[in-house]
Amino acid sequence: MLKVILWRLIGAIPNLIGVVVITFLLTRALPGDPAAFFAGQAATVEAVEQIREKLGLNKTLPEQFIVYLKDLARGDFGLSLSTGQPVATEIIQRLPASIELTFAGLLFAVAIALPLGVLAATRPGSWIDQLCRIITTAGVSLPTFFTGLLLSYVFYFLLGIAPSPLGRLDPVFMSPRAITGMYLIDSLLTGEGGLFWAAFKQLILPAITMGLFVLAPLARMTRASMLGVLSSDFIRTARASGLKGSTILYTYAFRNALLPVVTTLGMVFSFLLGSNVLVEKVFAWPGIGSYAIESLTASDYAPIQGFVLTMGVLYVLLNLLIDLAYALIDPRVGLEA
């Protein structure tokens, strides 16, 4: 098992290197003046020159890359021009909000998609199968930002059951003491029930918006893989052994059907992290996505670079986690490594 983990860790290294190289190239090797990018549109000629000096843009590309790596190693992502804060600090401050939202969205999607896929596969041709088919085709067509707006119109403006779709917490509440930075977890740790509820209500709509987008691929894959497993030889054996329907469905079929679903989680996270930006904008969610958008409008490049790098690294790590989860469920993986 340890060997498997080690192999996967080593396997993730080229991707991490790729992410760092691409992020570097995005700013240095493209047409245009990187110094001007970093300085922002309002910068004076002197300021641009100063930045050119500071970034070492007069050096060769490989030399610049070494400098970039050294900065990264020290946790230096540069300074944000609009706030004057180090980019790394701001990203670390805002990251928990994005992570909380992403996982809430994933949780919602999984909670709906897996049962839906299983039900559709066990009752082919039934109304639930048709429903599954409609949801999986329509779901991938939903522009997240539009779904978010529709949901807040219906649940906030029309029905009035959702809180104002702005931010993580109603202004009457104080945010909980930062432990993990995730409000739901922190408020539970500090034992503030009212606060937890307020943060939870605020999270529901954005999380559903994100979840709806990835529900479709998850349900589609669950249905297909469950159908495949249910017609396999070992399910016939389980039935011939008189095992209970529930045992056959969960212990035998579902666990096997989960394997391809875990694999699709990689794509699902790509969707989730990407749509994060859009959902954060719609719901004024103070995560790293809205940080990136604020910086875009201010032509403040260092934060965007930091954002792309953070997302890339985060995604590589999530894929690593998915690989490890897969290895945990499937005993056959260890052999191939």
């Binding site: 080229p14 991707n15 691409i22 790509s270 749509s275 965007i304 954002f307 890339g312």
Partner: peptide, 24 residues
């Protein structure tokens, strides 16, 4: 293949944002 893998190492929409922001 390495090129394809490296592109896929990013959440794709995020990479697109980065590219447009860098290219102009």
């Amino acid at each position: 293949s390495r090129l394809a893998d490296t592109i896929m190492a990013f959440p794709l929409f995020v990479l697109a944002m980065g590219i447009v922001a860098a290219l102009g």
